[in-house]
Nucleic acid binder design. Structure first.
Lengths: 128, 128
DNA sequence: CAGTATCCTTCGGGATACTG
DNA sequence: CAGTATCCCGAAGGATACTG
């Protein structure tokens, strides 16, 4: 019965609230940034390096959302040149487990998914 | 050290491949549909009911992607009226664990996140 | 260094209408 | 019932330029 619990919760309010939250923590960049901040404090530029595909704009926006949601702490050091450091809050760190689990699943199943996708394409082309 | 493993994998290829997959399984509807298909076979209309916010279009598209990725089986029964049933494949079911874990985390932390967000807004308004 | 501001294009996704 | 096709708008997000 315990496995049923979460599924029920998910549909608890029709999924509205959950969908909003999920939509925000589960977007393209958030999980990668959280994972990258795994047990390290990083500066803006460091993060920009570590998550290669991300643009300055999206890095800023995603970090702001994480800060706003209490998942990341932003520390500005009053120096010149400026030094801003980002680190996970306890809540942010608590996301690491589920986030890495999902990422792990994705990594583990990439081959199967790509194969399935290739087969599907082939079928579609053959039929179409 | 085992906790480091996934984080390393995540940045394995710069996150390109992972990001693609993650982006697809981790979008607004996919996790909810997978969770809704948890141990039941459902028809198109059933799913449309169970995931209230979703449009016909997005339900179709999301289901097609899931089918294409080998996470969902689509069975067409040659009847009139038509009867199409969707169920998770073994791979699809293997996603349930991580998906529900993430959903569970979200549900658990909604209060904290909303509070943090409210405080942040207040601060911004006060400063701005 | 760590952003902000602006422009511009693409795409997600809702509404609606039609079909086998 | 279970879709497909079309229209259309707003949001996502990259590129670029500017700033404290």
């Amino acid at each position: 019965m315990e496995e049923f619990g979460h599924a029920c919760m998910i549909r608890g309010d029709g999924g509205r609230t959950l969908r909003r939250i999920l939509d925000q923590i589960c977007n393209k960049w958030t999980l990668l940034i959280v994972a990258t901040l795994d047990q390290r404090t990083l500066r803006f530029t460091d993060l920009h390096q570590q998550v290669p595909g991300i643009s300055q704009r999206m890095l800023t926006l995603t970090l702001r959302n994480l800060e706003r949601d209490g998942l990341v702490d932003r520390t500005v050091h009053a120096e010149v040149p400026p030094r801003v450091e980002y680190e996970l809050t306890p809540t942010g760190r608590s996301l690491l487990g589920p986030a890495l689990a999902l990422a792990g699943w994705a990594i583990e199943h990439v081959p199967h998914i790509e194969a399935s996708r290739a087969a599907y394409e082939k079928r579609s082309n053959g039929v179409g």
